[in-house]
């Protein structure tokens, strides 16, 4: 058992990394419950920053806008993405490989480039900045994630099941609705949650596309931080991080991420 020391060292290392990943987040959440405006210690428990948050209409409006955009993105990207995944799974056709490769640029190209390009294009066609532009951008960024996640689930589906249903007289819509969709439901839910997370956490593209004074929550936080930060931002940031981590926990449950269930 010479290995014991190494294993122990490894586990300590893993613990240190988890500390590195979570400590700053916990510190921030902690500070949102601290009365001092200048993050002074000793810690003095107070809910006043959350109360202030409740009265800050600018932040509340931005939060509402962010949630609505994220919900719309989720619905549109999930429907379009699932449809595309079904076609990519069921049919063999020329150019299929090309269509699959087309999914990578939105994921791989830095959002700074995509965002500025969208700004130029939407101005060029007369749409300009604003919520519609933000929504169009978010759906495009979320679509590849939905297609990848749903396709991964479809890969575990046995196509002979569809054939069997068809041979018993079911038309193709019935086959899809009664056989295929139930099988891939967990993949679709995971894809939808990914889409929500991509939109709700999106900063760069929203930053270039939203109208000043009409921005999403991350954009508002960015401009506030640059003006000098207050614990009010800690309060809203804590809420955001709790929401997005909860969404991702659900997504992980449904997408069977990181192991068999």
């Amino acid at each position: 058992m010479k290995n014991t020391y190494l294993v122990w060292a490894g586990k300590v290392w893993l613990g240190l990394i988890l500390f590195f990943l979570y400590a700053p987040i916990i510190v921030m959440a902690f500070m949102s419950f601290n009365a001092s405006q200048y993050y002074q210690l000793p810690f003095d428990f107070s809910l006043k920053w959350y109360e202030k948050l409740g009265q800050n209409t600018e932040i509340l409006n931005a939060a509402t806008r962010s949630i609505l955009i994220a919900l719309a993105t989720t619905v549109i990207a999930t429907i379009l993405g699932t449809a595309a995944s079904l076609a990519l799974f069921r049919f063999e056709f020329r150019g299929k490989r090309f269509l699959q490769v087309m999914l990578f640029p939105p994921i791989a190209i830095p959002w700074l480039i995509t965002g500025t390009a969208m700004l130029i294009f939407f101005y060029g066609v007369g749409l300009g900045r604003g919520t519609p532009s933000v929504l169009i951008g978010h759906v495009a960024l979320a679509l590849p994630y939905v297609i990848v996640v749903v396709s991964a689930r479809l890969a575990t589906f046995d196509p002979t099941l569809e054939e069997a249903a068809r041979s018993m007289g079911a038309d193709s819509w019935t086959v899809t609705r009664r056989v295929t969709l139930p099988w891939i439901a967990s993949g679709i839910i995971a894809g939808a949650l990914f889409a929500f997370a991509v939109s709700f956490d999106q900063f760069v593209v929203s930053y270039f596309l939203s109208e000043p004074g009409d921005s999403t929550l991350p954009v508002l936080i960015y401009t506030s931080i640059r003006k000098g930060f207050t614990p009010e931002i800690n309060a809203i940031s804590t809420i955001i991080i709790v929401i997005s981590m909860a969404v991702m926990l659900f997504a992980a449950r449904f997408s069977n991420f990181g192991g068999e269930r």
Binding site: Y22, P218, I225
Partner: peptide
């Protein structure tokens, strides 16, 4: 944490 808001984590 990777799937939580990157801006918020930088703020932390």
């Amino acid at each position: 944490p990777f799937w939580s808001n990157s801006l918020v984590r930088i703020f932390c």
